[in-house]
Design a protein around this nucleic acid. Structure first.
Lengths: 336, 336
DNA sequence: ATGAAAGCGCTAACAT
DNA sequence: ATGTTAGCGCTTTCAT
């Protein structure tokens, strides 16, 4: 591998000059610059990023930690972070946390150690104190999908409460009186925020005490969890005509459970999901879902993180994003 | 940020000693090692990866270039590469190529420049010569989903031909006489291999010349492309009773086109996809598809790449993987 | 078992 | 406009 010295020698100039043309310094004569560029090309020279990072104390790497890249939700997050990173000449270092505290810690620390210039973290398993400590250690760390008290300006998150409220309200507006909620048994903040949104929507829209009872079932946030929860709900309550689910895969499970038991969706039971993930469009019927604008959120997070790393004034938008309801074919007016 | 010097000073030893305990050298007295470790912890010391890489000429980073991380197929690829990388103490640097030659080049070069110790490349837009040149430059570069002549031992790829053959054969075995093929209009090798598999299966199983005609339509390898291709096929041929599709999303489009026109799947028309991607299980009916064992392939690729980087003897498996048919509900016996 | 010192490839003063 | 040189944080001989 050719080094800067080789280039300097071959071109008959000093390493400083080569360095200048690499970095596009304006203080080099066009002739010299051309000569150096040609030499670099001839030698197949590539600047050593490690050396650059070491001396300049700033790398062009941005770290991203997500739960699992193979999940399209996180895949999109990574993609949109990469989009803005790429535009600014940066590249991505990624770490998977798998929703485990130990893995999340490891991922964050590995990235810090690798001198990432900015850091976008999606963590659900680590507590606020731990995250605050990391944030203090690395000044350009931004958190996505989480609100940490004291770090409001470094958090980009979704208004889960509002999303759940929207979904439930929509169901009620379609005339449904018995609207159930299928929740996640994982104790993360999203869970309780969505549940609260559901309950409040019921309360707000309630006409008399009997009309809109709270009906809930909890299970793991996967397809099978959705199936089990739906089954449980059905056993206790046969008057139910609509369900709002914690996420799209649980909704998929709920639809399966419903169909298996002879219920038609949406004619007999309406279903709403959350996330508007890839599968929502492919389910049958196509799933009405609460859209999670992860693309915009990921881009903002990347911009904020890079801005922090260069101490630029940040475009000071608020970190809270509003979800919207995407209406498809899994909801219909109540037949009553 | 504390450096190795700080640790040395605080612990009252030399930097060499600190370096030794960092690297678990056996030539340090346990007492000294403990002292140093404690000091490192107290100072919140993290070795600077750039410095390490610079001096030791080997980084712990592995590069992966895929077309688009937000596609679950590539997300899985990245995930399984990460799994083996993580086990061996490495981390991932990723680059998106978006099926564009320029982007793919850029991604590969950026990773090389960043001193990745090994490289797993999924490239469809770059030609064999370019790739061969890169492979020569970086001795630990492995190609996934591609077979480059002269680089057979560094390629991990799927037997597309066999997969297509399998799918078509299955349809014929179910009694279908008019089996069409919906192909991709993108000119990459997969396209023609799958088409060849389809045609050969038809020929092999053909009883008389009229029984199994070749019927094909090509469009972009997306859902809308599948819809259009299916529509075109239907216009020319109303006796068709089965379709094999280039991939699952085209199959999804085909099903939509079919359903929209009043055909039932699989009662009127059987459909088979390719990839066995995430959506296959969520489509209605659940899609029979050719499984692409990307997880195993990604793991092998990672192991090969790391082995190459350390000049270890490689477990010398063959790079070709055999696809299998996953039978679900989109195929039924021909009613004729 | 430990320390001193050279040097990895590069950038950034400082000189000229 | 270009060259000289110190030094970034670390590993690795070579001494001791």
């Amino acid at each position: 591998m050719a080094t800067i010295k080789d280039v300097a020698r071959h071109a008959g100039v000093s390493v400083a000059t080569v360095s200048r043309v690499i970095n596009g310094s304006p203080l080099t004569k066009p002739d010299t610059a051309d000569l150096v560029k040609r030499t670099m090309r001839e030698l197949g020279y590539r600047p050593n990023a490690a050396a650059r990072t070491l001396v300049s104390k700033r790398s062009l790497a941005i770290g991203v930690v997500v739960a699992d890249v193979s999940d399209p939700f996180f895949g999109s997050l990574v993609k949109y972070v990469d989009n803005v990173a790429h535009k600014q000449g940066h590249h991505l270092l990624i770490g998977n946390g798998y929703h485990e505290a130990a893995r999340e810690k490891q991922a964050i620390e590995s990235l810090i150690q690798n001198q990432v210039t900015a850091l976008i973290v999606h963590s659900k398993a680590l507590d606020n104190d731990t995250l605050r400590a990391y944030a203090q250690e690395h000044g350009a760390m931004v958190f996505i999908n989480r609100l940490i008290p004291g770090l409001e300006d470094r958090c980009i998150y979704l208004d889960n409460y509002h999303g759940a409220f929207l979904a439930t309200e929509h169901l009620i507006e379609q005339g449904h009186r018995y609207v159930a909620y299928i929740g996640s048994s994982h104790a993360i903040e999203d869970t309780e925020q969505r549940q609260q949104g559901y309950e409040d929507a019921l309360n707000t829209c309630r006409v008399t005490d009997e009309t809109h009872p709270v009906m809930m079932a909890f299970d793991t946030p996967e397809e099978t969890g959705g199936e089990r929860a739906m089954a449980a709900l059905l056993e206790e309550n046969d008057s139910l005509s609509a369900v709002f689910c914690y996420n799209d895969v649980m909704a998929a499970g709920a639809i399966t459970a419903l169909t298996d038991r002879g219920y038609r969706v949406p004619e007999d039971v309406s279903v709403v999901g959350f996330d508007d993930s890839l599968i929502a469009r492919y389910l049958h019927p196509k799933l009405t879902s609460v859209r999670y604008p992860i693309e915009e959120m990921a881009e903002l997070a990347a911009e904020q993180a890079i801005a922090l790393s260069t101490k630029q004034p940040m475009r000071n938008e608020k970190g809270s994003y509003a979800p919207t309801l995407i209406k498809r074919n899994s909801v219909t007016k109540s037949s009553e």
